[in-house]
Design a protein around this nucleic acid. Structure first.
Lengths: 231, 231
DNA sequence: ACTGAAATTTAGCTTCAGCTAACATTATAA
DNA sequence: TTATAATGTTAGCTGAAGCTAAATTTCAGT
């Protein structure tokens, strides 16, 4: 099947806005970081920043990155809502694996209408969190503050639930998948070693895992309540 | 919501292939007809025909239209399968109205992967017909012969079920919708007048409707079995 | 404060899918 | 059969969104 490859879609305005939102912690997103996230040359990002500025989506100070305007933020929330609702559907109803879901959602979020999005939300029962536990912005653009943090910032003794793993390296995903370290699994933090950044965790079966600094940075967790609520 | 309009997607290779399939009854599709269907200039179609020929999707004889090659036909079936599966989902699960469904499916069918399509098919229980009663091509590209015909070709006395209404005129859709003449409704053909092309039908409540020639051409029906099977 | 490295921007080019206007061919109908 | 209408093609342009290479600005370490 699929003899004729679907034209690989070029990155759109929405992608840039989302990338700026994801990259700019609470400040400006750099040309380089956005370029990397979108797999595009820095020159292209530089060009796009001035276009986004004209559209009123970002504020751009030459040589100092771009940050979202209010309109830009609203647009980012709109896309994030789509994305997380679609991910929810793919995981819960179509049986997607956790590795594949992000890719497919990324493709779909450009095609669906707002009407589709709201109908999907209704179909899913207006979830407030996606299956990773990350909050879904409301239709009005309100986003509950993200409660996840990198595993390396966890405290010894804390019980945490993996909410997501930074995408990127497929080998890493496979490695973690094999060990059952996937979103949703609950871990107890045994040790956070400042000296080398290694984090030692214990999974639900009592098995211990030693995770080097790069891994401990890629794994995002939320503190796990003893009684689960708000899902 | 939706402050930033999503870039209106330009027509892709797939659209052309589908348009050729839809317009070429069993022969060649004309430049003009394809242009109309895609809302694009004849010149653009002319250009695209040579590109499609290079890609091996159509055979194109200058000044005499284009017809699909085997590869082209397979590609059209792949898209038609996507389209009808998506329509089924939108109608049956998201509560889309019959007017809106085609539009949304058209947007989505460009974004979804084959993987998504097959997972959706499974989710829907591998339907062989869409909610209009039109056959869904198999994953291998086999299409059951279409059983619908324009209402104007119905025979007096025949019982038929509306399978679809040619899209295009929104006023027509509204007019028919008001009278309950929507896909799925069953009609009895009272009279087909050759002289002026008017068709008189009777709906399930016994109400009679007189439909002029343009309408009788736009409404597609399938002969209705007394015992419904194969859905 | 200076210098080299890193990041950013600009200039100029490419491809895609569209367009209009001009030209060519085919079809119709007197 | 021949003129006119309809249809189809070509030429040349536009606007996205990308790229590389060259120029500019900022940053970091001596």
């Amino acid at each position: 099947m699929s003899e004729v490859p679907d034209v690989q879609p070029s990155v759109s305005v929405g992608d840039y806005v989302k990338a700026v939102w994801e990259t700019a912690g609470s400040g400006a997103a750099s040309t380089k970081d956005v370029a990397e996230r979108l797999s595009v040359s820095p020159a292209s990002v530089s060009n796009m920043f001035v276009r986004l500025q004209e559209m009123g989506l970002v504020r751009h100070e030459r040589y100092h990155g771009a940050s979202l305007t209010e309109r830009g933020r609203a647009e980012a929330m709109r896309l994030l809502r789509r994305h997380r609702l679609i991910e929810t559907f793919l995981l819960e109803h179509l049986g997607y694996s956790w590795q594949d879901v992000h890719r497919e959602a990324e493709r779909l979020e450009h095609a669906v209408s707002d009407d589709f999005t709201e109908r999907l939300a209704q179909y899913l029962g207006h979830p407030e969190h996606d299956p990773h536990g990350d909050p879904i912005p409301t239709a009005e653009g309100t986003l509950e503050p993200e409660q996840s943090k990198p595993l390396k910032d966890a405290r010894t003794g804390e019980r945490v639930r993996i909410s997501r793993v930074a995408q990127g390296d497929n080998a890493v995903l496979a490695y973690l998948g094999e060990r059952g370290l996937v979103p949703g699994s609950v871990l107890k933090v045994r040790e956070v070693r400042d000296v080398d950044g290694v984090v030692v965790v214990e999974d639900e079966s009592g098995e211990a895992h030693s995770l080097g600094e790069p891994l401990a940075r890629s794994i995002f967790v939320r503190a796990e309540q003893v009684s689960r609520t708000g899902r």
